[in-house]
Design a binder for these strands. Sequence first.
DNA 1: GTGAAAGCGCTAACAA
DNA 2: TTGTTAGCGCTTTCAC
Lengths: 336, 336
Amino acid sequence: MTARRKKAPTMEDVARLAGVHRVTASVALSGAHASTRVSEETRERVLAAAKELGYHPNARALALRRSSTDIIGLYSGYTPNAHDPFTAEVINGLHQVCTPHEKDLLMFGDFEGRSADEVYASLANGKIDGLVMIPAPNRPLINNLAGSHLPVVAIADGLPDFTSVVVDDAGGSRLAVEHLAGRGHQRVLYRTDMYEHTSALRRLEAFQQAAAAAGMEVIATRPGDWDGNLSPEEEALLLVPPGEHPTAAACWADQSAYALLDACERLGIRVPEELAVVGFDGISTRIRPARQLTTIRAPWREVAVRAVELLLALLGGQEVPQETVFPVELVIGDTT
Amino acid sequence: MTARRKKAPTMEDVARLAGVHRVTASVALSGAHASTRVSEETRERVLAAAKELGYHPNARALALRRSSTDIIGLYSGYTPNAHDPFTAEVINGLHQVCTPHEKDLLMFGDFEGRSADEVYASLANGKIDGLVMIPAPNRPLINNLAGSHLPVVAIADGLPDFTSVVVDDAGGSRLAVEHLAGRGHQRVLYRTDMYEHTSALRRLEAFQQAAAAAGMEVIATRPGDWDGNLSPEEEALLLVPPGEHPTAAACWADQSAYALLDACERLGIRVPEELAVVGFDGISTRIRPARQLTTIRAPWREVAVRAVELLLALLGGQEVPQETVFPVELVIGDTT
DNA sequence: GTGAAAGCGCTAACAA
DNA sequence: TTGTTAGCGCTTTCAC
């Protein structure tokens, strides 16, 4: 099998077939003064010719002419993994909002091994009209982007220099503390992330504050890897008789919480009797997980939708709020 | 917050700053005979100017000039849902292969409510260089695409008119039958899909054939919805005393199998004692599911990777095989 | 009502 | 070694 390369008909072809000039055809097909300028008869000849040839406008030429591709980009500072429910939810949200606005969605990969300048060039070379970014903290790329002509909206992890759409991280932590305190927990683990997501920091800080206010002791730990498996430090904390280890663990993200649940099963720690577990994200997957996690539900799909709406507003030259915060809610499962 | 619209520097700007002509700058920066044609000194002046201005080539202009955007498209005939492990795996595979080839990935949405011609125009307007398609059967769009200049590779559900990358559906069914027969099952359900995926048909047919050869009775059913929930017909079949209903169910896809497992739990049917369950896909999710499904593992990621490789070959004018088939394997879990 | 000219940003082929 | 011309496909402004 080999590619057929017939070459799509151009407007010139349509004009020739209709016996008019290129620009007459252009106006007849899509011009602003189509009705005033071109006679009805000419117009129909052109339309018929276009139909006969199966003409449709060339997106590349339009993009150059209009300085706009009608493509929205998605870039994640982390290697994107569509199996991650957060990422999946964002993708779904972006699709959902792009369709009615007649935008397409370009998902960038991880640009592994490329310098910030190179990545920046790939993002800002005009391939996309605007960017939804899941930022990784402290990357030089952020600076490139901040001074750029490319409109950017950051999601999940807000950034002061960018229009940001986030969820109420602190509020989520307070809900978690309230819930755990209500069940009598006095000494709890807080599993933060491996990197320094600003959202994770916010969640941790708020958790510690709320816990202090509730007279609860907090031990902050980091998981052993990106998937949330136990670090040696954590193993040491949990591999002691049930009465001596924390009675609950709050995790910065569901992924981390599920990994902890798996670890508990391996180690013979009963959940929630010996250890209650709370997550953060609350995205429902299509396949039911082993445990019904107690978690803070964050509306990531709506975050994605709003991000694009703001991007379009920016593209339209409108003012938009620097930060948009979506509320979260506690969802009680069987792990607390 | 409002968009900063500084406008990126053009090559003209670079040339002016370097005191040379546009095309000299062009050649110096990226021309084929850069070293032979432009003096080292001029070249350095141009490079310096480019650097100073933060110049990078405009992708829109390049696309028009080169008649190529370096973007690969993904289109699914079904509404894409990134939470679906199959879809997620395909997306990951596409990313994985696009990165080293310096291609970007454009994910089209569902074009809800648009005619085949409109959808075709959106796909073939030159925005993308080639298309990876998850085809839905019997759609007029297929005909548009078949006669198109746009290179297309169909995945998962092969199509005779297109370069296709699929998995060994029939072989998978035979593995499932062999496995079930080996465990003494005589009367089994086969849950096919709601639509007429060609892959589902192939799986069903092969299952029936292999079952017949093994002296096994097969009852084919359809689920009640796209998520695989039980249809009334199926409920009737299963809501009888354990001794009287089929002892095993093979499902055309894991999603369907997981839904069946959920239904069994609701109905109090013990798996695998009263009903053994086999799936098809075998994609490992990031969150462990409630049950470890016995399934046929299909390498969807590799399918996606190969699809792009074939697409690039087509774009390079090479001949490629019409159909590529990847092998599958049986993965035994705790549901049989 | 229609055509001509100009230009979006870039590069291959041809001159000088 | 450098500059000029032409053109990718389209649309906006201006002249006829």
